[in-house]
Computed example of a mutant assay.
Amino acid sequence: MAGRGRGSGVLGICVALLVGCGGPSAPDAAPGDVRRLLDRRAEAVLDRDAKEYRETGRSAKAYDNLREVPLQSWQYRLTAFDRDGERATATADLRYRIKGYDSEPLTTSLALTLEEREGRWYVTAERPARKATEQLWDQGPVEAVRGAHSLVLGVGRGQGDRRDDETLREYADLADRAVPLVRDAWHGKWPERVVVLVPKSLDGMAGLLGAPASGYQGIAAVTTGETGGSGKAPADRIIVNPEAYGVLGDFGKQVVLTHETTHVATRAHTSPATPLWLSEGFADWVGYRGTGRTAAQAAPELRRALQREQPPGALPEDDDFGFSGDAGKLAEAYEGAWLACRMVADQWGEAKLTAFYEAVGVHKKRPGAVEDAMREVLDTTPEEFTARWRTYLRTELG
């Protein structure tokens, strides 16, 4: 018994020595300090406290640029931290909501550089993370114009310039007119309000989309957002290409904003099963609805193709809606899609068109979605529908 006790004592001493001299070191407190720093930074943004924001670091560009953006929430979540002495790099998710428009936060990723001075961490630079898209305030000071159903946010303009304020107000007026037009055509539930982003240039648009500018030449606007109808998707963003949009007349500008607003309205019923000829054609159908434009007026490229005796043999494929440098082919795709939806409205009725759209979107995958919806809603087949559409083109455009 006595010998066992002496052994235990020796073991106890060894354990104590190991713990005291060779055990694990205390965890680095820096990540926790940086999290608290980012919490302070977020509070400063929401409180519009410029002094407090600047005390979190030298990088105040984002704060200055987004002062006019009406924010409901703004929150950072540290996702990676790499320290090298008194300097560090980090990535963080930024989650934010625009007040009155976003039902859920939008998320983007930021790359941060930080510096420790006298025991405190400071942000020295903040920029979009690799592969993350830019936010509008990354491109300059944001100006905000509010409409009855819209919020227009623009950059690249002289703040306080009356002409630029009038330009953004024109966007708001067009969007405000678009919302009732869409509401009259689409009776499904949607927010009935839109956010329009107006960058300075095509390159600015591309930065917001995280894609090459060449893919959007000639495209007046696009709408971003979640497909699939989760019910938790934040409000979509209508992003304008000011170069292509600016050359349109008043009629064309209204059609474009109404088209894009339709995408916002139908988003919950648009899924991966929805072909682009249906989603783009339906949006154009709403855009032209009630304007009195004839098929020949609104589909000149397709009319010329028919006059050359080169009618389309099938409905447009998804790839036909990408800009490849052939503006005529792109126009034909949109015109053919519009006339397909117009045909359904003319021959089956507007209620059938919206029911068909919803029936396709219920499917989660493309195979069988259009076929099933055509059979259930329109009592036809894709082959019969296509033949009917080709006849409709000749009748309307001949």
Rank of each mutant, 00 (worst) to 15 (best):
Phe321Val: 10
Ala314Met: 05
Val362Phe: 03
His269Arg: 01
Ala295Pro: 08
Arg375Gly: 14
Ala283Arg: 03
Thr294Lys: 05
Pro316Asn: 08
His263Gln: 05
Ala273Leu: 00
Val377Lys: 02
Gly292Val: 12
Gly349His: 12
Ala298Trp: 03
Ala305Asp: 14
Gln310Met: 15
Glu335Gln: 10
Pro275Trp: 03
Leu315Pro: 01
Gln297Asp: 06
Ala268Met: 01
His259Asn: 08
Gly325Phe: 00
Pro312Gln: 09
Leu353Gly: 08
Ala283Trp: 02
Ala273Gly: 00
Arg293Cys: 02
His269Met: 00
Leu353Cys: 06
Val360Ser: 06
Leu315Gly: 04
Asp318Gly: 07
Gly290Tyr: 13
Ala299Phe: 14
Ala351Thr: 10
Pro275His: 03
Leu278Asn: 03
Gly313Trp: 09
Ala333Pro: 07
Glu335Ile: 03
Pro300Met: 07
Pro316Asp: 10
Glu350Cys: 09
His363Asn: 07
Ala295Ile: 10
Ala299Tyr: 09
Phe321Arg: 05
Ala299Glu: 08
Ser271Glu: 00
Ala337Trp: 04
Leu278Thr: 04
Pro382Thr: 05
Arg375Glu: 15
Ala331Phe: 04
Leu276Thr: 02
Gln347Tyr: 10
Ala314Lys: 09
Asp379Cys: 07
Ala369Phe: 05
His269Leu: 02
Ala337Asp: 05
Glu376Trp: 06
Trp277Gln: 00
Arg304Asp: 14
Arg366Pro: 09
Thr270Gly: 01
Glu376Ala: 15
Lys253Glu: 01
Ala337Pro: 10
Lys329Ile: 07
Glu301Ile: 10
Pro275Gly: 02
Trp338His: 01
Arg375Pro: 00
Glu358Asn: 12
Leu339Arg: 03
Trp277Ala: 01
Ala268Gln: 01
Ala345Cys: 11
Tyr334Pro: 04
Gln307Lys: 11
Lys364Asn: 09
Trp277Asp: 01
Pro316Tyr: 08
Leu315Ala: 04
Ala337His: 06
Thr380Trp: 13
Glu332Thr: 13
Ala359Thr: 03
Ala345Leu: 06
Gly336Leu: 04
Thr258Leu: 08
Thr274Val: 01
His363Tyr: 12
Thr294Gly: 13
Arg308Ile: 11
